[in-house]
Design a protein around this nucleic acid. Structure first.
Lengths: 144, 144
DNA sequence: TACATAGTATACGGAAGTAGTAGAATTTAT
DNA sequence: ATAAATTCTACTACTTCCGTATACTATGTA
């Protein structure tokens, strides 16, 4: 399961993506529009900022805006920051690999083999879908 | 992430699948062979039994054996019993659907739309892969 | 300079979930 | 009867998640 943190992070990036041509947007406004607890959102935006996705400006008239083209922000990168691994078992993770303590022979583990496949399928989607894509999807969905 | 419970469940079913032609296998033996804490495994096997996947026999000479053809036990069913939903967001789940409290319009949510796609890709693999397949994969992997 | 605005940073706490343990009850073969 | 095995309920320790609190820092404007 995706954590709320990750879901909120994506929502915030989507809102900021729609706001791309406007001046920086305040945390409170994002929190209100997306119904995200403000103080929780603060932490999340900070993480995204420290990871280089957001630009922030302090003080009066400050706020957050995207630091990258929405086309270049992919779900997989966000999820790795906020949730960690994409794979469902640590031994099948590319970026957060961890050996299963109880496994005798990883190389011949059929379970791992299946979950590597699942990981690849998931990864394909998440690494091809950007914030811009999500915005585009929403526009399409509205017209159905 | 898959819980250890689910991973242990799959491992136990695989062992029992390999043991299919033999008399029932004791919990202690499965626990030893797969290095799973015995009392924890007890609970897991009980769940699988109550879900109809296992046959159990009490008393001397008792133990567990598969109650179905290993070809008919699919990962998706095991995971739904031990871990619950397959989807990464509750609003994209088929069997454990739950509305996101903060969402205004689910039907036009781009995030949900992407994660429905991820769910379908995952589901395709997990609902096509059986215990028999995992055993077959292991045999293939050994010969590489 | 004073002040309000807005992000930065760290720490804390409740709730829920995960992993595993304990112990007694029940069933069955010998 | 007895020993071997599963069944069942409850409990505990640990961790993570979600959200809150509080103090601090930077910036624009009057």
């Amino acid at each position: 399961m995706l954590s709320k943190k990750t879901k909120y992070a994506i929502k915030a990036l989507v809102v900021l993506g729609k706001n791309a041509d406007q001046p920086p947007m305040q945390i409170s406004r994002i929190a209100e529009e997306e119904r995200i607890p403000k103080k929780f959102l603060e932490q999340i935006l900070l993480d995204l900022r420290n990871a280089g996705f957001l630009y922030s400006k302090k003080g009066a008239g400050g706020g957050y805006s995207l630091n990258k083209d929405p086309k270049e922000i992919f779900l997989v990168s966000i999820m790795r920051i906020t949730d960690g691994p994409i794979a469902m078992v640590p031994c099948a993770s590319l970026n957060f690999y961890h050996k299963c303590e109880e496994c005798r022979q990883e190389t011949t583990c059929g379970i791992r083999d299946v979950f590597v496949e699942v990981r690849d399928a998931t990864l394909k989607i998440l690494s091809e879908t950007s914030i811009a894509d999500i915005i585009a999807r929403e526009n399409t969905l509205i017209n159905i």
